[in-house]
Design a protein around this nucleic acid. Sequence first.
DNA 1: CAAAATCCGTTTGTATACTAACAATAATCC
DNA 2: GGATTATTGTTAGTATACAAACGGATTTTG
Lengths: 143, 143
Amino acid sequence: MSPSDDNLPSYRLDPQVGFLLRRANQRHLALFARGIPDLTSTQFAALAKLCELGQATQNALGRATAMDAATIKGVIDRLRKRDLVDAAPDPEDQRRRTLTPTAEGRALYARLVPAAHEITAATLEPLDEDERATFLRLLEKLT
Amino acid sequence: MSPSDDNLPSYRLDPQVGFLLRRANQRHLALFARGIPDLTSTQFAALAKLCELGQATQNALGRATAMDAATIKGVIDRLRKRDLVDAAPDPEDQRRRTLTPTAEGRALYARLVPAAHEITAATLEPLDEDERATFLRLLEKLT
DNA sequence: CAAAATCCGTTTGTATACTAACAATAATCC
DNA sequence: GGATTATTGTTAGTATACAAACGGATTTTG
């Protein structure tokens, strides 16, 4: 043992993946809130995926957007309150609620898509073309 | 205009950076909760940084751990309730509270450091050595 | 077919995370 | 030195996020 070999734990917070992921996410969320003040990023994700799919049950939409049942419920409640999403009982399965974007929801989504693309670009702005592709490829593996 | 050139917005949620960042963060948080059930990742970050620094005022610790004043307050409240952190008034500035890790806090931190390293490794496990370095380098730029 | 297991949506509780506003204190400026 | 400005910590309000438990509906299984 060297004289400096004490039992102080060798750990620094700053370079840890978890800390960096959290901060990168924070930065992205700030850019999102600035670019799309109308909706939170989660609400936009739910609306976007629902417009992609045309319709979905509540829990299925949650799975498609990586939100658990309790989370997607709150998100959908808020979107419904603003008449962006409609919920109808499923005649074939009485447990299910079939969600559909309203005309207003689809219109808002269509209107916001350009801003959403700009937010993605702004988030990746510190990287050059090659780095972006690399980063997205690797990030996808950590999902 | 080609016949297929309609006004449907071209947007897919799945490949967007924001969506991937959120999911990567979720995966990391799940690994963290499994590896360190004692503390949340945020609480551990605050405790770790405080042990690194020795002491800090509340808002300064928040800045060092990327938490705003309202967030760090709740985190510190919970750590204090568990006697992991001590808060003393600063005689030089009566607005400030000087935070210090308790002996128990330092012991817990020292005990958890190996698990924290394992969580970092588990989070990055899908990447090989080169990819990890690349990913961390690029992620740091998006902070 | 009946029992068990699963799935659906809901509710409660806890923990981030940010905005906004606030009182108390410090620092700065004219 | 007095007014303005900034900082510190607090509070209230909103929005994810997840765990755990629940009743009801459906599916699987024995």
